[in-house]
């Protein structure tokens, strides 16, 4: 139990995907303009990360490892993620239009989100078992969502600020990310 907890903290805070690992930066800067969309995106990422991690874990240990073709993981994993996202998108689209309007437009973005692919690689590299994989995926997703929410809150506030023209938009977002990164160093060594 302790181990699972420390994996969660590790993935969510200490080795935060965005600030420490540089994964998922495109959606991080692209979708953090509004808090509502940031939270929607975060939820979508958590769901996809969870599903992708489980499926990729199964495929890796049931298919790739027995046959000794672990180097095929890149192709297999991305295929799985792409299909998962597709399935999720169709499902939401057909069942709940409001949810689709809130979440759906971010789903295609997730396909090319390296955070999702990254978490599957990390799970495999760290040789996590299934429970650990699930916790690590959730931790990564929660960490991503947390930082995305903080970032969007700050950017909404910056919308009202008198930011110099040269820094407006993305550059100042980079600076925020830097300062956030420094602040998140505080979690170092906690596990």
């Amino acid at each position: 139990m302790d181990n699972l907890f420390s994996i969660f903290i590790m993935m969510a805070l200490v080795n935060n995907f965005v600030l420490a690992k540089f994964l998922g930066l495109c959606p991080f800067f692209g979708v953090s303009k509004k808090l509502s969309s940031a939270v929607s995106m975060g939820i979508a990422v958590i769901v996809v990360m969870f599903a992708a991690s489980v499926v990729s874990w199964l495929l890796f240990y049931q298919l790739l490892v027995p046959f000794g073709i672990t180097y095929m993981r890149t192709a297999i994993f991305i295929l799985v993620i792409a299909s998962l996202v597709q399935i999720l998108e169709i499902t939401i689209r057909r069942t709940n239009v409001n949810l689709y309007n809130a979440l759906g437009i971010y789903l295609p973005l997730i396909t090319t989100n390296c955070a999702v692919l990254g978490v599957t690689f990390i799970n495999v590299d760290q040789a996590f078992n299934l429970a650990e994989t699930i916790v690590s995926a959730l931790g990564a997703g929660v960490g991503f969502t947390l930082v995305l929410a903080i970032m969007s809150g700050i950017r909404e506030k910056l919308d009202l600020a008198d930011v110099p023209k040269a820094f407006k938009g993305i550059p100042v977002a980079f600076l925020v990310a830097m300062l956030l990164g420094i602040a998140f160093l505080a979690f170092g060594g906690m596990v």
């Binding site: 808090l35 929410a149 903080i150 809150g153 700050i154 909404e156 506030k157 300062l179 956030l180 420094i182 602040a183 998140f184 160093l185 505080a186 979690f187 170092g188 060594g189 906690m190």
Partner: peptide, 27 residues
Amino acid sequence: IRVYGSMPEGVAFSILLMNAFTPLIDR
């Protein structure tokens, strides 16, 4: 930070982290 983290002092970082949360709190 002081008890569980690797840094000896946590005041600066604790305030910085909460600064990041301020917009969300205010909202």
